[in-house]
């Protein structure tokens, strides 16, 4: 009887394995075609010098493209800009998103749904459309931002909001925050709504209300949600492309270049496909590291 049971169990176990393998095959095929093969191709290509218009003429350069990256001033500008965007996005999107979520959760009594909808709305518009709308707002000749500044007696940047290398990246950040803060707010709001009301009642008895309760009760309770929000924002900030491309194409004079746009410039405008591959591999390593962090924190959460 025992023997029969063991046989049945091992049979059903192997059956499960076969089923699992069969079910995995379509996903594996798609991943192989659309992720693994291009990724391997990119890694292999990063050791060669070739261009989009000379695909049959690959020249082996070893780690030459990676060495070139370390000596390339604009690569470091792009990487620095990515980190600026990460920092600014966390402050603006997660920070403001948290504040808005807290206000909507406990700060106001009426109109929560309306406010939530209004703040979330930019998220459903495509980034390209958002960029085009804000391009008009930032225009130094007919833009409403200049008009507002002038109407209250403030001076506007003489090189334009997007033409001044010192401020253009921040203007793009403001737009990105305008679009994405709503999503962060909804994410964090979901976390806030999971915090038990009894905890606040108990804290109130101990004298913790308002900002104190937010700081000592709310934030620790939604710590894991915040970590996930920060990681989503960080990964998004490293992948940023559309905003920069539509607004400035990395200009003025590479001041707003990020890795995404710099890879595009090298591959398609300057025709250094091998070098663009090497930069992509660097971006891939950063993304993998951040992905690993996200997975780790998600499991904890």
């Amino acid at each position: 009887m025992n023997k029969n049971n063991t046989q049945t169990n091992s049979f059903s176990l192997s059956n499960d394995k076969v089923s699992a393998t069969i079910l995995l095959v379509p996903a594996l095929i798609f991943c192989t075609i659309f992720i693994f093969i291009p990724a391997i191709g990119t890694i292999v290509g990063s050791f060669y010098s070739y261009s989009l218009t000379s695909m049959n003429n690959w020249k082996w350069v070893g780690f030459g493209n990676y060495v070139k990256a370390t000596q390339d001033e604009y690569f470091w500008v792009a990487l620095k800009n990515n980190f600026i965007i990460v920092f600014a996005s966390i402050v603006l999107q997660v920070g403001v998103g948290t504040i808005l979520a807290a206000i909507l959760d406990r700060g106001i009594k009426y109109g929560r749904v309306i406010f939530r909808t209004i703040i979330f709305t930019p998220m459903v518009i495509s980034s390209v459309a958002v960029s085009l709308i804000w391009l008009i707002i930032y225009d130094p000749n007919v833009g409403i931002l200049n008009a507002i500044f002038k109407s209250i007696g403030l001076s506007t940047p003489s090189k334009g909001w997007l033409g001044d290398p010192n401020i253009s990246i921040w203007m793009i950040m403001i737009t990105a925050a305008w679009q994405n803060t709503g999503f962060m707010m909804v994410l964090i709001l979901a976390g806030l709504q999971g915090v038990s009301k009894e905890v606040y009642d108990a804290a109130e008895i101990d004298g913790a209300t308002g900002v104190k309760a937010f700081w000592y009760i709310t934030l620790p309770m939604i710590r894991n949600v915040l970590i996930v929000a920060i990681l989503i924002t960080t990964i998004g900030a490293f992948k940023v492309f559309e905003f920069i491309f539509v607004f400035t194409q990395g200009g003025p004079a590479n001041a707003t270049q990020v890795l995404g746009t710099y890879i595009y410039l090298q591959a398609f405008n300057l025709l250094h496909m091998g070098y663009a591959n090497a930069l992509s591999v660097i971006l891939l390593i950063i993304a993998l590291f951040l992905g690993w962090l996200q997975l780790k924190s998600s499991r904890k959460a």
């Binding site: 391009l135 225009d139 130094p140 000749n141 090189k159 334009g160 033409g163 003025p252």
Partner: peptide
Amino acid sequence: FQDAPNATH
């Protein structure tokens, strides 16, 4: 030129 030619389409 006007101000901000690099920011003008």
